[in-house]
Design a protein around this nucleic acid. Sequence first.
DNA 1: AATATAACCGGACCGCAGTCCGTTTAGCAT
DNA 2: ATGCTAAACGGACTGCGGTCCGGTTATATT
Lengths: 210, 210
Amino acid sequence: MSLIPIRPGAQSGGGRPAAPAAEAGRRDAARNRELLLCAAREIVEESSVDALTMDRLAQRAGVGKGTVFRRFGSRAGLMMALLSDAEAEFQGRFIFGPPPVGPGAPPLERLIAVGAARIAWTLEFGELARAADASAYNRFDVPPAVLWHRHLEMLLREAGVTADPWLMASALGAALEPERLLHSVSVHGIAPERLAETWRELVTRVVAGQ
Amino acid sequence: MSLIPIRPGAQSGGGRPAAPAAEAGRRDAARNRELLLCAAREIVEESSVDALTMDRLAQRAGVGKGTVFRRFGSRAGLMMALLSDAEAEFQGRFIFGPPPVGPGAPPLERLIAVGAARIAWTLEFGELARAADASAYNRFDVPPAVLWHRHLEMLLREAGVTADPWLMASALGAALEPERLLHSVSVHGIAPERLAETWRELVTRVVAGQ
DNA sequence: AATATAACCGGACCGCAGTCCGTTTAGCAT
DNA sequence: ATGCTAAACGGACTGCGGTCCGGTTATATT
């Protein structure tokens, strides 16, 4: 069923070999991967995310179209690859970083702070994030999304939310989805601070109601 | 650029015929509209929503492909047309219907009830709802979505939520989006009652925190 | 160095949503 | 009836994401 080999890893058994992140595999494959990522960034910078079509990318990078899909699986996979640095940095902040986003602050404060950070992050990498989401059924099951969801769930638990924290994290996470946030800002002209403020209200009430 | 192209020679008046309700216009147009809706329902019933492609539909109904797009504007528009009866019935329930979904019950009760009703509705018409959403930028600005959002906002206001009810309605509405609900149920096997229960917790806390 | 082979490569190919434009026709006015 | 015109029609066409498969090449083995 053609799952997407987004990130490195997975070497064992059954399926096709996952896309090599940096090591592993033939040198030309790695070279083409870098070539493609580079060309993709150029196109996005020169025009827009929408201008980044798979054909154009292949041509720009001087490789065949098949190669693009072999490396990234799908357009969404390519977008995730383009985002992966920013995504990793963000993950680092809420896992290892300094409080209040990182560990060390009370859970409610962390919830508020990490939401605000997420909003800012989304507005910065918005177009890419939308394009990365804009596809599949498995959009919620891709590693960064799972990690993010689990983190929210953990913070809710720590804050004393005992009733179905998994679903509650899902519900709260829904409020932070890129498409919605970007729509609020770019169509309705909502100021980013209002988004953060509403998030604060929301999580405060959810936790306080405990 | 590349906004929706306006017909060259003649436009004036009514705008694009994206979704003419029932009357107005030539008889053949109305006939074809019914023909198409009928054929679309057949295809969905025989196979699935995914099997409903615009080419196949045109062929099945015995009309040209251009006609399909002229009538419904896009695939998402067609899906909305297919949903419109169910949508109208649902709207009727929360606007005119009996309490607690309709008017007459206290606002929090209405919020809880209408959310549960929405969840059930979404699970029933899930595939179509997903296909109707699955596209555009304007997905949040389509009349039923606007009405729904406004209704949530109104209930929040009545329940005493004074802080940015517009955005709060948006955040709460996000938790009820078809894609997310369907994913929870069909991938993670969440029971529908758990969804309704979490919604109840969520809105109760939001309103109580007031 | 020669060989074997698995991985990689390219681009033709497919089905799809959506557009364009020359042709036909419904409905009105005469 | 007849003629007129705006509206509707159909299907060829475009560009897209994604797949497939015969040819090519890096690398390990001898």
